[in-house]
Amino acid sequence: MSLTQLHAPATAVERPRFRAWPELNNPAAWLVALILLIMPLIASGFFLIEIFGTTLILGIIALSLMFLAGYGGMVSLMQLTIAGFAGYMVAVFGVSGNANISLGWPWWLATPMALVLATIFGTLGGALAVRTEGIYTIMITLAIGAAFYYFTNQNWAIFNGHTGINTVATPHVLGIDWRSDIPFYYLILAVAALCYFAVQYVSRAPFGLALQGVRDNARRMAALGFNVNAHRVAAYAFASFIAGLGGVLQVWNYRQISPGSVGVERCIDILIIAVVGGITRPIGPFIGALIFVILRTFALDVLIKFGLDGNRFRLLIGLGFLAIVFWSSDGVIGLWERWRRRQARSPSSTAGSRHG
């Protein structure tokens, strides 16, 4: 689709429709969906929450980065900071074990307030970041993340300093404790699915197509009459809301939040997750998150078994990151598609050699 077509009013053909989405015609996608739905029947509580639940939560946060980088060409290192901000707001406005800090609002008031404030926070940060390009955008978003970490670590009146806020209350609706393993897993899965399809929809909507045009050639899009900065700031707002959802689920998962949850190294982890999985497809962040969580969970035991420091699991993650980026610029998805193309070519080449 050309940039001129992007500028034209959206028609019925241009509007994204579910029946036109190739993902829904892929049998492998339906198989994955079925496995995720029946996961509580085949996985223990540990695997259900600590592996698959955590994977989906980190995947949601990394999905917000993928949207900005893949469709907008903007690499943001403050997506985990936005998620942490939403988690802190849930703890501050809601109910927790720190009664002198938390305001005691019910979850159905504290959660929307946290999401609104996190979206505003991310939008303001994005408004600063879009005034720069390239490495300067990365540095500004990283500076915002570092500043928020030190602010939470040193502020005791609102964030309770380095101790953080503990025993955060979780939702109870219709007599169901939504933090118990199975209900919480399905809650995470539902939010992850909504975020995934929302990103897919927006990427094919007129706004998403225009954003991709801005990514490819901002000057030409401005010449066509598009407000480049407005599109970029709106992209930050949308991505911030997604990151905020991940932050709310994260604070409900651990029932506490502290400055360690929003450290600079955690911000970089989100970038690694998105890049390893694939920065150009919405499914990529979830693949990267699964790889990251498995390495983080089981590499510790393997390293300790061989008498090595368990913290060196980050070395394994770093080596894997370098290997994947070296062999594929689009992460695991790129490697998979390269392998499929090679497999598709091999039968024809074999048949051609036989006929020759």
Rank of each mutant, 00 (worst) to 15 (best):
S2E: 08
L124C: 08
L128S: 03
L249P: 07
R179T: 03
G122W: 01
G73L: 04
L249Q: 11
G244I: 07
A110C: 12
G263K: 09
S240H: 04
G246K: 02
A20T: 09
F52V: 15
G84Q: 03
L24R: 07
L117T: 02
L48E: 09
L316W: 12
W156F: 14
L109H: 00
Q212N: 06
T152S: 00
F306P: 02
R179L: 10
Y71N: 04
G59D: 05
A351S: 11
V302S: 03
T167A: 15
D309I: 10
I82S: 02
Y150M: 00
L271F: 08
G97A: 05
G145C: 05
G53R: 11
R220L: 11
F326I: 10
V275S: 06
N25H: 13
A118H: 01
P259M: 04
V90P: 05
N160S: 11
I42G: 14
P112L: 11
A235S: 15
V199G: 04
Y236Q: 12
S180F: 13
G307A: 13
N166C: 07
H355D: 13
I304P: 12
F238D: 05
P282I: 06
T123V: 14
M89I: 11
Y88I: 14
F151G: 01
G87K: 01
L34E: 04
M78P: 01
G72H: 05
Y186M: 04
R281D: 15
L36F: 06
R15G: 07
W107D: 12
